[in-house]
Amino acid sequence: MKELIEHITKALVDYPDDVNVKEIEDEKGMIVKLSVHADDMGKVIGKQGRVAKAIRSVVHAAALNENKRVRLDIVE
């Protein structure tokens, strides 16, 4: 899952070296924390959150194939 999110996000941003993805397992599933350079935050979120929603949709679909529950948090 981490590699998928990194691949998608690095294609969107101007500073791909600053993309950081952390996976945290808990009893409800997996939490993925995505952080990017401050200048790229708008590109990852998109107008009215459309890009973030699209990334979450892809992650959700990939998680269904693995029978996991994944939540994506975009943090500063």
Rank of each mutant, 00 (worst) to 15 (best):
V70C: 04
A63F: 03
E76H: 09
R56V: 06
R71C: 10
Q48K: 15
H60C: 09
R71W: 09
Y15L: 11
V32Y: 00
I55Q: 01
I74R: 07
Q48L: 10
A62I: 07
G46T: 07
D18A: 14
I24E: 15
D14H: 12
V32E: 00
V44M: 09
V51N: 02
I31P: 00
K43R: 15
G42Y: 04
K28I: 10
D14N: 15
K53T: 09
D39Y: 03
G49A: 05
D18C: 13
R56P: 02
I55A: 00
S57A: 08
M41S: 08
K2H: 00
K33Q: 08
V70P: 02
D39K: 11
V75C: 10
K47M: 12
R56M: 03
E25F: 07
A11T: 12
R56K: 10
G49I: 10
I24S: 14
A62G: 07
R69Q: 08
E25S: 12
K22S: 07
L72K: 03
N67D: 15
K33P: 00
A63D: 05
E27T: 12
K33C: 03
K53F: 06
V32L: 07
P16H: 04
K22D: 10
K68T: 08
V59G: 00
G49E: 11
A52E: 02
